[in-house]
Amino acid sequence: MSECNYLYGNYCAEKRVTVLSQMLDFCGIEKDRLRARWVSSAEAPEFVEEINEFIDVLKPLGPSPLKKQTSKDVA
């Protein structure tokens, strides 16, 4: 975590993500749909692994409930 190129940026992001994920949950949107991980540009395999893991989490959740109900988004 302490390896951010810009020193603290990732900590700040982490705090905001913490709040947002719980707010999504409060509004009835699965919080697993939001994910923040820290992968450096030198860690390609880790990045791929993260994305694949995320895909595995997302697939069972199905499409966003918002998508179904707002025609605007679908178009």
Binding site: D25, F26, C27, G28, I29, E30, P65, Q69
Partner: peptide
């Protein structure tokens, strides 16, 4: 439950 919350806020 989650879906109730969702429809409430929607």
């Amino acid at each position: 439950d989650l879906s109730k919350r969702f429809s409430f806020w929607k």
